[in-house]
Amino acid sequence: MTDPATKGPASYFPSIEKKYGKPIAEWQALVRAALPAKHMELVAMLKEQHGMGHGHANAVVAYTLAEDGK
């Protein structure tokens, strides 16, 4: 989980894990498997194929791409 002082996309991680039942690492693996898709294509994939809300999907994608330097 994240520290209470966490800001930015990672601040959504506890609620994402609770709501969708998978650890963030699994969501990141899905995003990475869909590369080299563009940011909004990845967001759409999480929303359409996994029922994730826009804000949560955007947070996972933004954090994953930033972590990977993309």
Rank of each mutant, 00 (worst) to 15 (best):
M1Y: 08
M1I: 07
T2L: 03
T2N: 06
D3I: 06
P4D: 11
P4E: 12
T6Q: 12
T6W: 02
K7V: 13
K7G: 14
G8A: 03
G8F: 00
G8M: 01
P9S: 11
P9I: 02
A10Y: 00
A10W: 00
A10N: 03
S11T: 04
S11P: 00
S11R: 11
Y12Q: 10
Y12R: 13
Y12E: 04
F13T: 05
F13S: 03
F13M: 01
F13K: 01
P14T: 06
P14G: 07
P14E: 03
I16M: 08
E17H: 02
K18N: 08
K18T: 11
K19V: 09
Y20Q: 06
G21E: 08
G21F: 04
K22R: 14
I24H: 02
I24G: 05
I24K: 04
A25Y: 00
A25Q: 09
E26V: 03
E26N: 10
W27N: 05
Q28C: 05
A29D: 09
L30E: 11
L30Q: 11
L30P: 01
L30S: 08
V31H: 02
V31E: 02
V31R: 03
R32S: 13
A33P: 05
A34L: 07
L35Y: 10
L35W: 08
L35D: 11
P36F: 06
P36L: 07
A37L: 14
A37G: 12
K38V: 09
H39Q: 14
M40E: 15
E41C: 05
L42M: 10
V43P: 11
M45Y: 13
M45S: 14
L46R: 05
L46Q: 10
K47D: 12
K47N: 15
E48T: 15
E48G: 09
E48D: 15
H50V: 04
H50F: 11
H50G: 09
H50P: 07
H50K: 14
G51K: 10
M52Q: 13
M52F: 09
G53M: 12
G53S: 15
G53F: 08
G53N: 14
H54W: 08
G55W: 02
G55N: 13
H56R: 10
A57K: 05
A57I: 06
A57D: 09
N58H: 14
N58Y: 11
N58G: 12
V60P: 04
V60R: 00
V61C: 05
V61G: 06
A62V: 00
A62H: 04
A62D: 07
Y63H: 12
Y63L: 01
T64H: 03
T64G: 01
L65C: 02
A66M: 03
G69L: 03
G69C: 04
G69F: 01
G69D: 05
G69N: 11
G69E: 09
K70W: 06
K70V: 05
